[in-house]
């Protein structure tokens, strides 16, 4: 059974209720993230997820995911199997997160790229041994950030589906198909397919091929924005914006119009002085004209959905 650190008693009870279900075994019901539409209802067997558990009796976990979603439950299953301490970091402030990592000697953190981008900048946490990134597109910009903040950590970038579980793992933004993974993963016309339930399933995720075995996941087809017939990847543009000094995070989206279909817009949260004209000037140096956000809003914060990802609905 896990040892849970959470000061809110009702939240502690709710997490422990899930932990007890895990301890008993059987099935747990989830909803998918709903990043691109209505959340789907999925059932997973604790036994099946437990097949992927690794032995690590000394791990201390930072739980960053909603404990009712599969990503959070996977952390609880891993921790439960090893009787590990789990420190709840879900929806905590940046200060609480930093303090918890230090005070409780957290060694393992599994989180979305957005979590790391929003909560870390120049801090250093040398005791963290494992960082697992998942749940959304992970760029080398986030991996570079994580390497600096957690210099002694092994980094894993995981591609997973709620319906299936973990599909692929990498230490960078590039995934490579091995002999083993090629049996269940293939790329067709730049779409990622995964074999489960007796058939090949189009995940809806679009990839950019590097060679016949390696690729980068660039995002869901449904999040691509069509500007005058050109498909624009909002994640790529967000990455270009987020590496600017004084930008804390951003959300790129399309605004419909009858002339070009969409134009690109961005909500940008900043820390310090940075004006729209400067942002556009910098982006024009690296983006194609139709990729440059035409409408930019400087905002105080950007809404996330229940799984800690930027809400695109």
């Amino acid at each position: 059974m896990i040892k849970l650190i959470e000061s809110n008693n009702s939240l502690k009870k709710a997490i422990m209720d899930i932990a007890k279900q895990i301890d008993v075994g059987g099935e747990i019901h989830f909803s998918s993230s709903g990043t691109t539409g209505a959340p789907k209802h999925v059932i997973h067997s604790v036994t099946k997820i437990s097949n992927y558990v690794k032995t690590d009796l000394k791990a201390v976990w930072g739980l960053t995911y909603d404990f009712t979603k599969i990503a959070g439950v996977q952390v609880l299953i891993q921790a439960n199997s090893n009787n590990n301490k789990v420190v709840n970091l879900f929806q905590k402030s940046q200060t609480e997160i930093h303090n918890s990592i230090s005070e409780h000697f957290i060694t393992h953190i599994s989180a979305t790229p957005t979590f790391f981008r929003l909560n870390f900048n120049k801090e250093i946490f040398p005791l963290v041994k494992q960082i697992t990134l998942g749940g959304e597109v992970c760029t080398n910009g986030v991996i570079d950030l994580v390497k600096k903040v957690f210099p002694n950590a092994k980094i894993s970038n995981i591609y997973a589906l709620t319906e299936y579980g973990s599909v692929l793992a990498s230490s960078s933004e590039v995934f490579t198909l091995s002999k083993r993974t090629r049996k269940t993963v293939k790329i067709v016309n730049d779409y990622l397919y995964v074999f489960f339930n007796g058939m090949w399933n189009n995940t809806g995720d679009v990839v950019e091929l590097i060679d016949e075995r390696s690729f980068i996941i660039i995002g869901r087809e449904s999040t691509m924005i069509n500007v005058g017939g050109q498909k624009v990847n909002p994640h790529y543009i967000e990455n270009c914006i987020n590496i600017m000094e004084k930008v804390t995070h951003s959300k790129v989206f399309g605004i419909k119009n009858s002339l070009t279909g969409n134009i690109i817009a961005a909500d940008i949260a900043i820390n310090g002085d940075l004006d729209i004209k400067t942002i556009k000037k910098l982006l024009k140096q690296i983006l194609k004209p139709y990729e440059v956000p035409r409408i930019i809003n400087i905002v105080s914060s950007i809404e996330l959905n229940s799984t800690g990802k930027i809400s695109r609905i």
Binding site: V227, G228, I255, N257, S258, T260, I263, Y290, R294, I295
Partner: peptide, 18 residues
Amino acid sequence: SLSLAQLTVKIESVYGID
């Protein structure tokens, strides 16, 4: 064309007309 698209979006946001 992109500036025109931006113009139409801005006008629509103020005047409600595309």
